[in-house]
Amino acid sequence: MANEYKTGSETIGAAGAKSKMTLFKDDRAEDIGSIIVTVLIVAVIVVMNMK
């Protein structure tokens, strides 16, 4: 039952290509991607608010 429950296309953290809910290779790559995106957003905001 537990296995049935996990098949499908929306397993958030699954590593298999079919069950991924991310465009990244895996969770670790997505984590690093989110850190990079945050750094970019923060950098833009800090620059915009520089006096």
Partner: peptide
């Protein structure tokens, strides 16, 4: 489909912020 697959990236970015 692929656009919605970016949702986790956005959620993680929000959590860091």
């Amino acid at each position: 489909s692929n656009g919605f697959k970016l949702s986790r990236l956005m959620i993680k970015t929000g959590i860091i912020m």
